[in-house]
Simulated scan of single mutants.
Amino acid sequence: MSERFIGRGWGFPLRVGPTGGIAMVEREREIEEAVRLILGTAPGERPMRPEFGCGIHDQVFAPGDSATANRVAHHVRSALERWEPRIEVTDVVVAFDAVDEGTLYIDVRYTVRTTNDRRNLVFPFYTIPFDDDADGGAG
């Protein structure tokens, strides 16, 4: 019963399987790809499901500070609680890359509900830092 709940579906991104058809994924891999799909989709991006996705994309031009990290964590938790019923989100930790100031790593820690299997997924998210010194090319 638990394997049916976890499911089987098309791999994402779409790709060709070993027999030439659409590649399928199942069980925990299917959940992981679903989580990545939710986080990688901005609300409004899908015409037939305009509410689907995660609001982290609104933070692309936000400063790299703790307030942005908190907003990102909130968006991730809210989106996964709404769109992925097969998991329970236990924690979302947002860390900034020490070298690349425009990269945040979102560490999603979750439990698969039917198997009680604890997992985590690290999702890279890229921001575009605002340059205060730029003159906009006004020379």
Rank of each mutant, 00 (worst) to 15 (best):
M1K: 14
E3T: 14
R4N: 11
I6A: 06
I6W: 01
G7S: 02
W10I: 15
P13D: 09
V16K: 07
G17V: 09
G21D: 08
A23I: 12
M24E: 08
E26L: 09
E26F: 06
R27N: 15
R27F: 10
R29T: 13
E30H: 15
E32S: 15
E33A: 10
V35N: 03
R36A: 13
I38E: 02
L39I: 01
A42H: 08
E45V: 09
M48N: 05
P50D: 05
E51R: 10
I56E: 04
F61G: 09
A62L: 05
P63V: 07
P63Y: 06
D65M: 07
D65E: 05
D65V: 02
T68L: 08
A69V: 12
N70I: 12
R71D: 11
V72S: 05
V72Y: 00
A79H: 02
L80F: 00
L80K: 04
E81V: 10
R82D: 07
R82K: 12
W83Q: 01
V89Q: 00
D97F: 07
G102V: 13
L104T: 02
L104A: 14
L104P: 00
V108A: 07
Y110C: 04
T111H: 02
T111L: 04
V112H: 03
T115E: 04
N116S: 12
V122Y: 00
F125K: 09
F125G: 08
P129M: 07
D131Y: 01
D132F: 09
D135V: 13
G136R: 07
A138W: 07
G139L: 15
